[in-house]
């Protein structure tokens, strides 16, 4: 395999690398069928991880949506986001009678530059589509499904919020693969904030709070583990599924997902104001709570 090229645009290849040979069934979660015609930029379905069933949700950056001209190159459009949400809800449905420890995992393969930015999208409410997918993931996570996001290429801003940041744990290929995690490139930040690019470049060398890159997200607690080799993706994903499952069984949901990453950001020194603010608020609320709860 040619790793020099990295994995950008290779969501389907990643599925082949991660799931057992010939195990991938697109648009199918057990016997629940997901409409195959919609959202070509999103690939969803079921695959096996060493024999264990898992739902996958991946970007296909090679696909072009013929109905929405802003959706190509991995962009998540309205159809794509709802399709992704359907895959999640169908997974919940398929396992609804299973106990917590048997809820199947969801694996998100992340390589997306953004959400559909068009006029039609705004008229019909693109914000609902991506919001919908996030709520679905949060629901599945809280029901006990382990959710692992694997960033193989681009994880940019709102698209990453939608496809990745609701996972229990987030893994990312090492930056040598060209992996990108950021809100905006520094040139755009410079243009909008009117701060010199030179200054931003200098600061971004060691400022995890706005700098682009996998390592900085790691320091902020936004990425749990960096995967050094593509061959390691499968084993690392499996390891994290097991870890997440254990934590859920032990009732430690607060160590996972966005809330867990908050604590991790504090631990790694990247986001320390968050906790102080929250503690102060709690203290001030406790001082007046009686008055409001017994009005």
């Amino acid at each position: 395999m040619d790793y020099e090229q990295g994995m950008i645009g290779r969501g389907r290849d990643a599925l082949e690398m991660i799931f057992d040979a010939d195990s991938i069934k697109e648009n199918l979660i057990d016997d629940i069928q997901i409409e195959a015609e919609i959202g070509p930029g999103a690939v969803v379905g079921t695959g096996l991880l060493d024999g264990e069933k898992a739902t996958f949700i991946a970007n296909d950056a090679q696909a072009i949506n013929p109905r929405f001209n802003v959706v190509y190159f991995g962009v998540i459009g309205m159809e794509e986001a709802y399709k992704m949400a359907l895959a999640v809800y169908s997974t919940i449905e398929a396992d609804k009678d299973k106990p917590l420890e048997q809820k199947r995992p969801l694996v998100l393969i992340v390589d997306t530059p953004g959400n559909g930015p068009g006029k039609t999208e705004e008229i019909f409410g693109m914000n609902k589509a991506t919001g919908s997918y996030q709520l679905a993931l949060a629901e599945a996570r809280k029901l006990g499904h382990p959710i692992i996001a694997m960033v193989i290429g681009r994880a940019i801003s709102g698209a990453f919020l939608c496809h990745g940041l609701q996972a229990d744990q987030i893994l990312a290929l090492d930056k040598t693969f060209g992996t990108m995690i950021h809100v905006m490139p520094l040139t755009s930040i410079s243009r909008i904030t009117k701060i010199d690019i030179e200054r931003l470049e200098e600061l971004s060398k060691d400022n995890p709070v706005f700098a682009a890159g996998v390592d900085f997200f790691h320091r902020l607690g936004g990425v749990e583990e960096i995967v050094k080799k593509v061959e390691d993706m499968k084993a690392t994903i499996k390891k994290h599924i097991a870890e997440v499952r254990e934590a859920k069984k032990a009732g430690q949901q607060e160590k996972l997902g966005p809330w867990g990453r908050g604590a991790l950001g504090d631990e790694r020194g990247g986001r320390v104001a968050r906790k102080k603010v929250m503690e102060k608020m709690t203290e001030e609320y406790n001082a007046v709570a009686d008055k409001y709860l017994n009005a």
């Binding site: 930040i189 709070v209 900085f216 990453r261 950001g265 986001r271």
Partner: peptide, 17 residues
């Protein structure tokens, strides 16, 4: 907020959660 974009992004996910 672009000045602290990564932290802002993570906070968004927490609100949804």
């Amino acid at each position: 907020r672009l000045h602290e974009s990564n932290a802002g992004l993570l906070a968004h996910a927490e609100v949804m959660d």
